[in-house]
Design a protein around this nucleic acid. Structure first.
Lengths: 340, 340
DNA sequence: CTGAAAGCGCTAACAC
DNA sequence: GTGTTAGCGCTTTCAG
């Protein structure tokens, strides 16, 4: 005497109606049920109606997993970001969602916490479940990325890798604009509050900064690395202040806002004593105190482009899109204080 | 003469190494390979080593989908939130991630945009792919929720439904504390800037507000509904001002911050002319202007509890957890202006 | 138009 | 220890 409904290997109480159940109940073959549900026009109106009725009555729900093992498709796409709580990714996510929905795909999100190990874990499990992957600011080694791309369509955001399609923000230009703005305000000593050393964007920004600095005749020193978070910014504030620079260029807005908060707590006038800039123009950058001068990028467009590239996979050769940026000047930057 | 590697039903260029490939190359049966990879101790050291070597050399990656169709498990959990860009969910996500990781599960996130249709779509596709689902502030009809729960372990956040396990924030107490605070400051006319009418939390907050109001002897009027976003808040600000109330209780922080920004633009002193409160204590609530008085809840703990409940599914009967809240008083609330 | 049967890639009895 | 053999739930030829 066994327990009544032990079919499903799942947890207790989880019963699933299968095609077989419907077929038996409707008195037809499983293949007929399958067709009646997925290609209704290949079935006579009579049986089609009956099958559909039975399916509904039994509460049949197709097992997407089983379907995927044969079709190889799940109609799902994944977006992996290093920090889901960083508002910088919101635009990306929204844009990607928009396109995914338009293409009748379901978008799932993964948070890798900026940790290559976690990123690999996610990819390992999610990788065989989704039809394509958007990797934002991936921290994975080039080799891993290339290997992954051989198994699944992959598109990179803000990371360049020959052979893989990607969408990147024009960091160089953003830094250039920031620098020009600061120089115009009379700043000659700039400190860069750096982010994660191994990230592609970090390297990119620093390179642009040193290049631009020599050209503009200003001094730039690199401080850090600091965590690209509010707390990281608090630490960066003190270091920046101690450096003697009159302008602090933050790796990103999260860090820059942290700087602002710390400076306010310490009673350091911004931009009176130091000017502060960020990168990303995130939620909050316009209502923190003082509002942050930062570089804004068309992130929604990036999201859309990423999914477009992913879906349009007949890749003649890997597409590479560069998105323009614009300096959003707010009150956190002002004239350099008179030299002592 | 066909193309060289057309085995995979996937996209062009996507080749996957299967157990069979490894088995053939290593000269053993597929089951041996399977065991060598998943239960190494059941295999002789010699063959185990050889198999693993071949697997690595060929770049074999297990197909999780295929594994799932037989085992019924994917080691993945899903968290569905109505708005992934609302900082209110960050704690929840972080807590859930923490527990998921500890239990060696991968967490995937879905954004339903507060739309029941999208929520259903996500569930439809994701539902058969994950081992359990956390639904935050679900907008789905009770019946759909119950039906879903018969097929997958489900746990609700901030939505109560008899028969389903859930974790809820103590909204009533949050409202009570807010009201008490306002009354102590001398406010007698309060306007509630309401959120989505159909959401459970909205109903809950309004009920607590009316109950508390009569008891405290203050007048509360319900304005809206407004979108629970910064923009919704801008509209709400004007309505709130026009209502003649001296205190505005926002549905959530996003809305309340929108109110603050609009009032600042209009030159309305806060809390001089009106006090403003929010709910959630999101990122930004402490650095907007003026910093927002709001209700803070242990959201990380909620996230942990939700995953715990999900994993610990031997459900004697559906667990129900209520999490306490605390009023975080900041500068957006102050004494009621003298009556004219 | 419908049914039978062969798998998808993998796991899990059950033999040898 | 290792191979053989059934499937998991579904789609998809291939017959009829």
């Amino acid at each position: 005497m066994t327990s009544p409904t032990p079919r499903s290997p799942g947890r207790a109480g989880l019963q699933n109606v299968t095609l077989h159940d419907v077929a038996r109940e409707a008195g037809v073959a499983v293949s007929t049920v399958s067709r009646a549900l997925t290609q209704p026009d290949r079935i006579s109106p009579a049986t089609r109606a009956r099958v559909q009725e039975v399916a509904r009555r039994l509460g049949y729900r197709p097992n997407r997993i089983a379907r995927a093992v044969v079709s190889g498709r799940t109609q799902m796409l994944a977006v992996l970001v290093p920090d889901i709580t960083n508002p910088h990714h919101f635009g990306l996510i929204r844009g990607a969602e928009e396109r995914a929905r338009a293409a009748d795909r379901t978008l799932v999100l993964g948070d890798t916490r900026g940790d290559p190990g976690l990123e690999a874990d996610h990819l390992d499990r999610l990788g065989s479940v989704v039809d394509g992957i958007v990797l934002a600011s991936s921290r994975l080694p080039d080799a891993d990325l290339l290997e992954l791309a051989r198994r699944r369509p992959v598109v990179l955001h803000n990371r360049e890798l020959p052979g893989l399609p990607g969408v990147v923000t024009d960091f160089d230009d953003g830094i250039r604009q920031t620098l020009a703005h600061l120089v115009a305000l009379g700043h000659r000593r700039v400190a860069y509050l750096s982010g994660p050393r191994r990230s592609w964007s970090e390297g990119r920004r620093w390179a642009a900064l040193t290049a631009g600095a020599t050209q503009a005749g200003v001094t730039v020193q690199r401080l850090g690395p600091f965590a690209p978070t509010l707390d990281g910014g608090r630490a960066a504030a003190d270091a920046g202040l101690a450096s003697g620079a009159t302008a602090l260029v933050g790796y990103n807005d999260l860090l820059a806002i942290g700087v602002l908060r710390r400076l306010e707590e310490c009673g350091v006038p911004v931009p009176g004593t130091v000017s502060v800039t960020g990168f990303d123009d995130i939620f909050g950058a316009d209502f923190c105190h003082p509002p942050l001068t930062t570089v804004t990028a068309p992130t929604e467009e990036a999201g859309r482009a990423l999914v477009d590239v992913l879906l349009d996979d007949r890749s003649p050769d890997p597409e590479r899109i560069v998105l323009p940026v614009r300096l959003q000047v707010r009150q956190s930057t002002g004239p350099a204080p008179p030299t002592s």
